[in-house]
Amino acid sequence: MKNLKLFPLVGGFAENKDKARDIRVQEIIPVLEKGQNLILDFEKVDSITQSFAHALLSDLIRNYGIDVLDRISFANCNETVSKIIEIVVDYMQ
């Protein structure tokens, strides 16, 4: 299982959708394509925007189906980060 630390890539306020898309395409999809599971580690990330979470996750859910969430875990999320991820996962189902 790969542990992907997001803070070095996006900083404390994760709002850059271009970075979210790059992470999805360059980091997440290759792991899923290899059949491996993944931890998205939000340690030190204070907040994210819905746009960031959408650019990171929506296409994965659309392309792999909602069961992709069995293969991706979210670690060290504070309350704000958790709630925004939940919003995106909610409306994508």
Partner: peptide, 20 residues
């Protein structure tokens, strides 16, 4: 919510959700 100029699909595209 969920409406963006980039698509007529509900929930937007991979890049735009229509939520801001």
């Amino acid at each position: 919510p969920g409406i963006t100029g980039t698509t007529s699909k509900e929930g937007g595209t991979d890049y735009n959700a229509g939520a801001g």
